[in-house]
Amino acid sequence: MSVRAAELPSRDALQQLVRAKAGTAKVHHLVPVHPALAPLLPDGGLRPGAAYSVTGGALLLTLLAEPSAAGSWCGVVGVPELGAEAARSAGVALDRIALVPQPGERWLSVVAALAEVLPVVAVRPAGRVRDADAARLAARLRERSCVLLVCGDWPRVEARLAVDEARWEGLGEGHGYLSGRDVVVSVATRSTATPRHVRLVLPDATGRLSAKAPGTGPVELRAVG
């Protein structure tokens, strides 16, 4: 029996079909991010079921702020020194965040448990995570539509968000007060070869992320006349 080539769907069409089947439900439920960060991420937000690597406490708080403001619960595992006041300033709703500061050896099972119901879980792994464990957790994340934010190493991440070229403003030699930090946030994804960058102020004078042009440094006083 022969099969005619014309009846077989092309590879592209198959891929489209698969993508449509796999992606339909998910794409609508992206976890929102700050508008200034959205263009850097491949989907314009955090994709449920994926893991993202994050460096820096302020960036983590910024990522937690948007879903938290939208009414979602967030979990933070293994970060005992998370600054709660900075989190509040960044826009995180403190009555909808659950902290597990000292999970110890069982951090992985704690993350797996929280991933069942919380849409966003941040974790600082207590040790090296094995590929098999990561794969099992990834399956759980996909099944439960949970976003995992990792402060540290993780085998397969969707994107790596990092703070590059940070510079604090407002501090002089013995005077001033920290007023904001000019940063370049870089996002390296699996699909894009080169990282994308954006220049931001994180945190600004109110503790939030802002995209406006950075202000000038401290005014230097000089003796004149």
Binding site: G83, E85, A86, T206
Partner: peptide, 9 residues
């Protein structure tokens, strides 16, 4: 504000 994102207990 801005406050430290990391506070040592």
């Amino acid at each position: 504000d801005p406050l430290p994102a990391t506070v040592f207990a």
